[in-house]
Design a protein around this nucleic acid. Structure first.
Lengths: 142, 142
DNA sequence: CCACTTGTCCCCACTTTTCCCCACGGTTAT
DNA sequence: ATAACCGTGGGGAAAAGTGGGGACAAGTGG
């Protein structure tokens, strides 16, 4: 279970240190892919597999489903942690998330999100502004 | 499991280097054939066999099935990797996929697709110009 | 049946990228 | 206060992508 928000820096080679508390759960490999709202989503391999199976099960007869399938797997990268517990973020994904030097690593229970500070701030701002309303709407779901 | 998108070049002889990460799974030979939507599909031999059996089992009484059978097997090529991990793409297939110099090698879970950059771009555009839709639709599957 | 052309495969070489390893400073824990 | 750990940075070795030469085999035509 991943919790908390950590501010780390990408170095000149595009590497990002994963918080030490997360590393044990990621030792068997991770899959990094596009997340919602222009962040990156990092899944432990064990969490990725069932997701991949769902995507692979989509009907091949539908052109839209075929292309979706292609893009899901094509834009995903399976990575390993180096001896210092870092991942190397592919340039494509770095651009997608707008990552420069600073990055926020956010634990979201079963997966991990990686944000540029600016985009995270934008999300946090809207949460501040509409937080009460959102909470009220979601309260009915719990 | 094949993941990620790699940009490699065909050399003057029509050879294409397979990403090193994929090679281990392809060591026992591969089958290269026409893919859907004008790409090429590359299967590890182990994945090809059950696929071939399904196609072979199609009823011979149906004309479409007969033609499909011919297409699948006639255009398929069983290849090996050379000592540098490359495959030699037959001219017919190269023309089918519109491959010139650059090629994209795309991991699609159980198989690998080979695309000309232009056609791949069309696939990417078909979903969403900036790619954010992938993440959204993926999220709905969770 | 032989010579010639064509194509495939093996080998070597170069360049770039990737990965591994070590090292430093700062913080936290003992 | 000391030690251990963590985030950060960078150098260097190893591997990957690329290109081309040349041997061998296959197919073609005489």
């Amino acid at each position: 279970m991943f919790l908390g928000r950590y501010a780390h820096n990408l170095d000149a080679k595009g590497r990002l240190a994963i918080p030490a508390r997360f590393r044990e759960a990621l030792a068997e490999g991770v899959v990094l892919t596009r997340g919602i709202d222009r962040c990156l989503a990092l899944y432990p391999m064990a969490a990725w597999r069932p997701l991949a199976e769902k995507v692979a099960a989509l009907p091949l007869t539908d052109a839209d489903a075929r292309n979706f399938r292609r893009l899901v797997f094509a834009e995903a990268a399976d990575l390993g942690l180096d001896a210092q517990g870092r991942i190397l973020i592919p340039p494509d994904l770095r651009r997608y998330a707008g990552l420069e030097r600073e990055a926020l690593i956010v634990g979201v229970d079963t997966s991990i999100e990686i944000w540029s500070p600016e985009r995270w701030q934008a999300v946090a701002d809207s949460l501040d502004a509409d937080g009460a309303e959102i909470a009220q709407r979601l309260a009915t779901l719990i």
